[in-house]
Computed example of a mutant assay.
Amino acid sequence: MIKLQEITFGYTRHRRLFDGLNLQLEAGRIYGLLGKNGAGKSSLLRIMTGLLYPNGGKTEVLGHIPLKRQPSFLQEVLFIPEEIYLPPISITKYLKTQSPFYPKFNEQQFRYYLTEFDITYESKLDGLSFGQRKKVLIAFALACNTRVLIMDEPTNGLDIPSKSQFRKLVSSVFEEDRLMLISTHQVRDLDNLIDAVIVLDDSEILLHQSLEDISKRLRFTTLSSVENDHRVLYAEPSLQGYTVVMEDSAQLENLTESKVDLERLFHAAIQQPERIRALFSTPSLSKAPTL
């Protein structure tokens, strides 16, 4: 669905943000894009949606070249940026002006999502808080039923109950012919939502794997001691000893396996990039066959 080949991009002539970046994303997955501030997450999303033009390389989304911004592309790809702007009009009028651009928009779904977010349909956008406006935009995006939905920091401005509701709604609308890509630095907001993770570090794709594959090669557990344990990639003190990310091995015994911890996985990848690359050097999501 999304294919980036040898992408180069920079905001200045003397410094490139991306230099030969490759990435392929397929339908039927909810991807989480993680990275430190300044890693290039937002720029990457904007290249995918045609809002930034790469200096070189090839970008395809649903068979379209994003920078052409053709109607057939725009009606199937929806992007929610981190910084949002909604006009000072009613929700009803917003729908009348925006929904015609999306042939699969479903107003009944939209009303349901608003109710789930505790937003009144008759509200005026300029009378809502930032978090409430964000929820209106998320509800609208989900109701558009586009094949590709890309969100940059969608949970910024949401309170804890709303973040939980966000995860619930995104999971409920996902289908096998759709692709969702969510970028965030609030890693825990993606717990129990994504099924594949991409870590962008130093303008490169450091990790691109399904959570299933990660759970086969890494163990997320607690150890009483980590001294001289070469298997440990990342450790932090806890009441039980140390919470760790470690290489899985047939030699490990009596350890309680846990689900992938996205926050600790991210720390492990950033602190041990070479070991992560070596562990996942076999064919992976990021090296899928060229279509």
Rank of each mutant, 00 (worst) to 15 (best):
L4N: 02
T8H: 09
T8C: 09
G20Q: 03
N22I: 03
Q24F: 10
L25V: 01
E26M: 02
L33T: 03
L34D: 07
N37L: 08
R46E: 15
T49A: 11
L51R: 10
L52N: 11
K58L: 13
L62E: 13
G63N: 12
K68S: 11
P71Q: 09
S72V: 03
V77H: 11
Y85D: 09
I91R: 09
Y94N: 08
Q109H: 13
Y112H: 15
F117S: 00
I119A: 12
G127P: 05
G127H: 14
G127I: 02
R133G: 02
L137Y: 08
M151I: 01
P154S: 03
G157H: 06
G157I: 05
D159P: 05
S164P: 02
R167M: 06
V173Q: 08
F174L: 07
E175N: 10
E175Q: 15
L181I: 14
S183T: 07
T184M: 01
I198D: 05
S210R: 05
D213I: 08
L218F: 12
R219I: 09
E227S: 10
D229F: 06
D229V: 01
V244Y: 08
V244F: 07
D248Q: 14
A250F: 13
D261N: 15
I270W: 04
Q271I: 00
A288M: 13
